[in-house]
């Protein structure tokens, strides 16, 4: 469920019509062409969509390479926040 919601958000950030399909294994930089601005946009949208605060997780978030890795991390943050 988290993965599906996250994929929709990633699709919104990567708005290019030539963007590849977003998969769990998709790497943000190498496969999706993420820039630093894209990363900022993604984090802001995740906070809105999942109603979580990621400020204290910046260091860990910047080390996540794939969409699936981000989904797992968000799930754990959301679970802790409940």
């Amino acid at each position: 469920m988290t993965m599906e919601r996250l994929a929709q958000i990633v699709n919104r950030v990567v708005s290019s019509p030539r963007a590849p399909e977003v998969r769990e294994s998709s790497r943000f930089v190498e496969d999706l062409g993420f820039s630093s601005v894209n990363a900022i946009m993604l984090i802001a949208l995740i906070e809105q969509e999942f109603e979580i605060d990621l400020e204290q997780h910046m260091t860990q978030l910047m080390q996540i390479q794939t969409v699936g890795g981000a989904a797992d991390y968000i799930s754990s943050v959301a679970a802790d926040a409940k």
Binding site: S15, S36, V37
Partner: peptide
């Protein structure tokens, strides 16, 4: 600068 760019991209 990043804020201008993200706003242009709809976020």
């Amino acid at each position: 600068n990043m804020a201008r760019s993200s706003a242009f991209q709809g976020v």
